[in-house]
Design a binder for these strands. Structure first.
Length: 1045
RNA sequence: GGGUCAGUAGCUCAGUUGGUUAGAGCGCGUGCCUUAUAAGCACGAGGUGGGAGGUUCAAUUCCUCCCUGACCCA
């Protein structure tokens, strides 16, 4: 006996039962440990931070990871799944600041760095339990007990090892760079952080004039455009594009300006062009500064040249403030310009700035503009809106600010990164070639230092040499630290060993030449931590050398598109340099999850989807399927709960009902797959071989797609097969046969076929929807153990028979056409009809049709199929052009040729069929040029589509009408049974009240009716006091009374 | 401002090495079928394939420009 799903069965309710089963069975560990270590598939888990709550976007990435890992497991691979936690960096610090009410850097110092870092450590796993519950509930199999944690000393040591590799190669250096800088954090932000904080800002854009000093252009001014008036006091130069054309103009108001010729549209008044220059001719021209409160030590205030100057907006002349822009800084370097910093790193103007001193840089824009206007230096002012980066937690505009920072010089091996990227299989591919590829092309050195507290300390110590220059050494291991340190034991005398600040700051080293060295104060970008996970998770190279070498690069990783410049990059940048190989071979990138209207989910809007709610309501199986199946994974997804319910109703309910059907009838009729005598597939009925062929075609596509990491395509194939092929055709067509099989062999053939389909579907969906797959598998094969421990590697090519699939497609096509004719002629399917005519064009087609004849006739309730052979006189054949063939052949004449072919008459067509070619109006046509079809059958109502034409005999004779009547009657009785919840095996008596004609029809068919409706007694005795059911059948009045026996 | 992707029915998505009636599901209307089905089937309504050009005998598909949206970057 097979176990059926009980009435209370629900998908959400299944989770606990299955989790319990896996826990007792230790299924996950078995699925890894019982596999051959030699045949491994390496997966890297991108570490989340557990100090924030998990959201729906985490569910999609983890579903993708889980699907591939489970799939590879079933393919026989050993897939180790070590979890990881990202624990350093600003997100953690921010949480702590919020908790403790610390508002600035100063507050943190007051609170004390030791205490602060202790708080950070405590805060890391604030939501760990939520993450664990999510992991469980969504059935994400990962080893949480053995997770790597980025703040552990061993992990940090591995990161140090990597940093030292960079340092020793001269690729980790201290530099002065323009970085986005938050005035409140007083720290540069990583590009990742910047990306989180773009806000639309209304800013002034001003055109200002710079007076030229040269005698020759005494009254002439440079017209310059800027969107950051606050940088003007720090101006030291102007810059023009060397190859562009500039003009000197004289306006109606007698103003003389120099600007780019292609930007003349910004001039307010009429003007005439006085003189033209190439950009290069302007180089070196001096001008008077706008503001004078900053002192300059070097030559400044002249025109420079720069390729970066564009002519898309502004005036083609750019003002240069080297401290506040990257291009500006580079020009400053090139021309040895002084660096003025009228605004300090805290975002406030410096003391020397007079009335601006101590005020925020952005807030001074209006006053600066006023002052420019007062001095006659303002040409015009506009407001414009642009998206400007803000600090994502302090919500203040960032400054681009020149600051000391440590860099990894990734640009030196950029080409290698680009080369290696080509070896990576990106899914979807355009992310790799486009988004990531372009990012690599424009690679910038990686600013890895942070002036913060909670992070991997930069393992660099320094002393000052005789010239006062800093000399650096980098430490690459704890052992090295101990060896070089003079005070290691002292520092860690009373506290446990901890590589973090501030303890590490107290460690003094001795340099190679005997000098005492102090540590630099910075920590590193936490993206360097996570990018080091391939080796740091196993404390390589200090331990697990062999393991690492075997498991690098990863076979597979998956994360959201937001990781392109995050983790995908940090893995790639670190891996390429250290190991000369990409860090991963395949990856799947999932798109963002938006709300159902396509808006970003945000707490303030209140449109955030809670994954726990979704799983509680619909079950993780459905959620997982929906997330990866409903739209391509790489596209952003508008999350819509209603659509998820559709997935449940259509796919899961169909599968479950098919399963229930199998169990119900197996148990009723006494079938057990394992005990039954196997019928070879070739011995089975045509329809069985057909569904087995379909099944194997589906498996083939499933494997192909998953091997290409195409999850969505893979599961859509299974989805369609389950609903269309298996449930709506195979099971429906065979219902009678399952109830009343012809013989033992037929029974086994039918049931074994259905069983095998179910089993294979269950295996195919196991990676995607692991709970329901497990439940059904264990019920179907109670002695086999978990589906997730089963092997699933191949399909049976020999059982794929195209001919079978084609002939069934033809049958379905014909059935479809007949139904259409019936509807148009108001003939219910219940009404039997005499005959169906189908013309065929070849012997092959005829034979194909004969093989599916019975299926067609039964499906459409017609008595006979008459096949009209090609030469039958009553078929009217027509020809239509095959453009694929005639296009290249006739070129420009195609339109004319089309007309000719459409006008082919019977003689033309028969000549073409006989001779293989026909000549007409000077053109020669062959079989390939023409598609023949049956347009009409004389004297019949026809229906046709591209492939087939049918004609249906719609005339009714007495026999047919009677039979139709009987079927109607049976239908009424069955409906009654169903509506009154009769069991299938309940026997009934029927009493009918109707006219004589009907009575005679019914009594002529009593035996048939009895059999169909499970009736033992049927008569027209009139029972008094019973409630008869009124109905009418084909407009004839009829009453009946039914009694359960 | 630059990059990537997308824009196909009311919604979610297929498809197209360029071939002349562009498909499915959901939703809507009508009818039908059913003793596994909160299912299914048929018919119908619903599409200027984002817009404009170009290449071609032929463009939803290739090219150019533009518009809109999402994301990434400045």
């Amino acid at each position: 006996m097979y176990k059926n799903l009980d009435d209370k069965f629900s998908l959400p309710g299944l989770a606990d039962e299955m989790l319990d089963f896996w826990a007792k069975d230790d299924t996950f560990n078995k699925s890894v440990n019982e596999k051959d270590p030699k045949k491994h598939f390496t997966f890297y888990e991108g570490p989340p931070t557990a100090n924030g709550l998990p959201g729906i976007h985490h569910v999609i990435a983890r579903t993708v990871k889980d699907i591939i890992c489970r799939y590879k497991t079933m393919q026989g691979y050993r897939v180790n799944r070590k979890a990881g936690w990202d624990t350093h960096g600003l997100p953690v610090e921010v949480e702590v600041e919020k908790q403790l009410g610390l508002k600035s850097r100063h507050d943190i110092y007051e609170f004390g760095a030791i205490n602060f870092n202790e708080e950070c450590k405590k805060s890391i796993f604030k939501y760990l339990s939520q993450w664990e519950i999510l992991t469980q509930k969504m059935a994400y199999w990962i080893n949480l007990d053995d997770a790597y944690v980025t703040f552990h000393n061993e992990y940090i040591e591995s990161v140090w090892w990597a940093l030292k590799k960079f340092f020793d190669a001269g690729l980790m250096v201290k530099g002065f760079k323009i970085l986005p800088f938050c005035p409140i954090c007083e720290s540069p932000l990583s590009s990742h952080e910047v990306a989180q904080g773009y806000v639309d800002l209304k800013d002034p854009s001003v055109y200002v004039t710079f007076k030229i000093k040269n005698e020759e252009y005494k009254d002439t001014e440079f017209l310059v455009w800027t969107t950051t008036p606050w940088t003007l006091p720090s101006n030291v130069a102007l810059c023009v594009n060397p190859t562009s054309d500039y003009v000197l103009i004289n306006t109606k108001k007698d103003e003389k300006f120099i600007l780019s010729e292609s930007r003349l549209s910004v001039v307010k008044d009429e003007y005439e062009i006085v003189k033209r220059f190439k950009g290069t001719e302007l180089e070196g021209m001096e001008y008077e500064p706008l503001f004078s409160f900053m002192e300059v030590e070097k030559k400044a205030y002249y025109v420079t040249l720069g390729d970066f100057v564009t002519l898309d907006d502004g005036t083609g002349i750019v003002h240069i403030a080297p401290a506040y822009g990257e291009d500006d800084y580079n020009i400053g370097q090139k021309y040895d310009l002084p660096v003025l910093q009228a605004v300090y790193r805290d975002g406030l103007f410096v003391k020397a700035a007079g009335k601006y001193a101590g005020r925020n840089f952005k807030e001074c824009d209006p006053d600066l503009i006023l002052e420019l206007k007062a001095n006659g230096r303002l040409y015009k002012k506009e407001m414009f809106t642009h998206s400007y980066p803000h600090c994502w937690r302090h919500k203040v505009p960032l400054m681009y600010y020149a600051t000391d920072s440590w860099f990894v010089k990734t640009t030196t091996y950029k080409d290698k990164m680009i080369e290696m990227n080509k070896q990576i299989n990106w899914n979807p591919p355009e992310f790799g070639s486009g988004r990531f590829g372009n990012w690599l092309e424009e690679n910038k050195d990686w600013a890895i230092s942070r002036n913060r507290f909670w992070g991997t300390p930069l393992p660099v110590w320094y002393y000052l040499d005789d010239d006062g220059k800093e000399v650096y050494e980098c430490v690459g291991s704890i052992e090295e630290l101990k060896k070089k340190s003079t005070n290691f034991d002292e520092v860690y005398k009373d506290i446990p060993f901890d590589l973090h600040k501030p303890y590490i700051d107290n460690i003094k080293l001795v340099s190679e030449n005997g000098k005492e060295m102090k540590r630099v104060t910075e920590v590193i970008d936490c993206w360097f931590d996570s990018g080091s996970m391939p080796f740091a998770q196993y404390h390589y190279p200090f331990e697990n050398k062999e393991w690492f070498e075997e498991n690098y690069p990863a076979d597979f990783i998956a994360e959201g598109v937001d990781q392109t410049r995050g983790w995908f990059y940090s893995l790639h940048a670190i891996g390429t340099f250290l190991f000369d190989k990409p860090a991963y071979k395949n990856l799947i990138v999932n798109g963002l999850i938006l709300d159902k209207l396509g808006k970003k989910m945000s707490k303030s809007v209140g449109n955030v989807v809670n994954p726990f709610d979704m799983m509680d309501k619909h079950g993780a199986d459905v959620l997982r399927w929906y997330l990866v199946g409903n739209s391509p994974i790489g596209k952003s997804k508008n999350f819509n709960e209603d659509e998820m319910v559709d997935v449940k109703n259509k796919f899961f309910d169909t599968l479950i009902n098919t399963y229930k059907f199998f169990v119900l009838y197996s148990n009723m009729i006494g079938f057990d797959y394992t005990a039954s005598e196997k019928v070879d597939v070739n011995e089975r009925q045509e329809i069985d071989r057909w569904i087995i062929s379909k099944l194997n075609s589906v498996k083939k596509k499933y494997f192909e797609n998953l091997e290409g990491y195409e999850i969505t395509k893979a599961i859509r194939v299974v989805h369609d097969f389950t609903i269309d092929e298996l449930s709506n055709w195979f099971v429906r067509r065979n219902r009678k046969r399952f109830r009343y099989p012809e013989n033992e062999a037929d029974k086994n053939s039918a049931y074994q076929t259905l069983f095998e389909c179910l089993r294979e579907i269950v295996k195919m969906i196991a990676p995607v929807s692991p709970f329901i797959a497990e439940k059904l598998y264990c019920n179907l094969l109670p002695n086999e153990g978990s589906v997730h421990l089963s092997e699933f590697t191949n399909f049976d090519e020999a059982n794929i028979v195209n001919e079978l699939e084609e002939q069934m497609a033809m049958a379905q096509e014909i059935v479809y056409l007949v139904r259409a004719v019936r509807v148009k002629n108001n003939l219910k399917v219940r009404q039997p009809l005499r005959q169906l005519l189908v013309p065929v064009l070849s012997e092959e087609e005829k034979n194909r049709l004969l093989r599916v004849k019975d299926i067609i006739l039964e499906e459409i309730n017609v008595k006979e199929l008459k096949i009209l052979e090609g030469d039958s006189d009553i078929i009217v054949k027509k020809a239509k052009p095959n453009f694929k063939s005639i296009g290249p052949k006739f070129g420009k004449d195609v339109k004319q040729v089309q007309k000719i072919i459409l006008s082919f008459d019977k003689a033309d067509i028969s000549e073409l069929q006989k001779a293989g070619k026909v000549e007409k109006e000077g053109f020669t046509f062959t079989n390939d040029d023409v598609e023949l079809f049956t347009e009409n059958i004389e004297g019949w109502i026809v229906e046709s589509n591209n492939a087939v034409t049918i004609a249906l005999d719609t005339k009714l004779d007495k026999e047919l009408a009677d039979e139709g009547f009987v079927r109607e009657f049976i239908n009424r009785v069955q409906n009654y049974r169903k509506n009154n919840d009769f069991e299938v095996n309940d026997k009934i008596s029927i009493f009918v009240k109707t006219n004589d004609e009907i009575n005679s029809i019914l009594s002529n068919n009593t035996e048939f009716i009895k059999k169909e409706v499970g009736c033992e007694k049927m008569g027209n005795k009139i029972l008094e006091g019973k409630e008869y059911i009124n109905t009418d059948i084909n407009d004839v009045y009829c009453e009946f009374y039914i009694e359960k026996i």
